[in-house]
Amino acid sequence: MSKNVAFPFPGLVKGMWVTLKALFKKAPVTMYPDVQEIPVPRARGVISLDVDACTVCMLCARECPDWCIYIEGHKEEQPPSKPGGKPRVRATLDRFDIDYGLCMYCGICVEVCPFDALFWSPEYEYSETDVINLLHNKERLTEWLATVPEPPALER
């Protein structure tokens, strides 16, 4: 072992060669605020809501592991589809809030939605200075809908 102490050259010099090579390599860095990285289409960035598709079935709120979805709705009487028929009842969404301070981005809500009202968008720039602003309401969630990308092509 003392031999290594005396002549510590081959391994140490090799290591210094690696760092010297790295010194002259271009750094693989994305200069974030100037240049934005484009996330992959499936990235779970933020959940967007299609209000028209939502039927207030509450499945997402029930399946959410940390109960961060708040839904309120009421039933509205609609005129019957044909004259003389029974008046239809349609559920209307009053409140649909997702608290991103609680959300753990598991995606179960998107998965269980039977009417395809929820989608993942890869947007990630919605940090806030106040935690209360992380509660995104119906309108804010609808805004994200425009950013939902097309699904990627599949292998084989």
Partner: peptide
């Protein structure tokens, strides 16, 4: 600067 470039970073910018 040298340290960050050896680590393939950019360092102060």
């Amino acid at each position: 600067k040298i340290g960050s470039h050896m680590q393939t970073r950019i360092g102060p910018y």
